[in-house]
Design a protein around this nucleic acid. Structure first.
Lengths: 117, 117
DNA sequence: TTGACATATTCCAGTATAGGAATATAATGT
DNA sequence: ACATTATATTCCTATACTGGAATATGTCAA
């Protein structure tokens, strides 16, 4: 089976480095397609395509302004990612003191020694 | 050109839903391959492969314990993701009050009207 | 060593991209 | 209507990746 479709959730959309770059550009404010193309030195269609993906997963919003389309970041979806990763905060907080680390490791080890798998 | 390789950075590794699930399982503590396979009802090779990817990008660590290998989460890399997304915090904080939103929008619009692109 | 258990690796098939080039659509001004 | 500017879409190619099945490697115990 193939890779899971990317156009469905913000995680996959953000996985592409170029799209992170694009979001970085948009973090400075609303931008038109050509502005982005200019700033990042990409071809216009490439910008449109990546914006298309980001739009599908609602990582960005658009509004028309004359012949231009101005894109801007939609925080909601980014928050979703942030929240998910945030759930693992304890794994990097305080460097997780050695003592605590060892305690947890032992606990796990004991359980496992009983239920050989 | 193809999709960017997944084995290079944590973002792409985490893009795969199954791997997020796997990390979720590991968030409860150290686990062996078969324990994970049992809990998630996956085939063992599938578990090993996904763990392999997570290992390459250091999202997890391993230690041997007899014939088993116990995997555990490595917070460092998750923090990297968290930090990146955190840089966009202002886009979801406080729902970004209407007033501020409009102010920024206007500012952007003015600039753009001068440098037609 | 042999057998049993635990995990990793290889080979395969099917699919989802990303980028490039060319083209299509849309909106504006004259 | 027409030319121009701005953006989106289509077609193509090459590649990366996932899952499944089968197999290999590793580790322990008798």
């Amino acid at each position: 089976m193939p890779r899971a479709p990317s156009t469905l959730d913000p995680f996959t959309a953000v996985a592409e480095p170029k799209r992170r770059q694009l979001l970085g550009e948009l973090s400075e404010g609303e931008r038109s397609v050509n502005q982005i193309a200019g700033a990042l030195k990409w071809r216009q269609p490439q910008v449109s395509k990546h914006l298309g993906v980001l739009l599908q997963v609602r990582l960005v919003n658009v509004r028309r302004a004359g012949r231009r389309r101005l894109y801007r970041i939609n925080g909601q979806q980014l928050k979703e990612i942030h929240d998910w990763v945030g759930g693992f905060e304890k794994f990097w907080e305080h460097q997780l003191s050695r003592i605590k680390q060892r305690a947890e490791a032992n606990q796990t080890r004991e359980k496992q020694d009983l239920q050989k798998e």
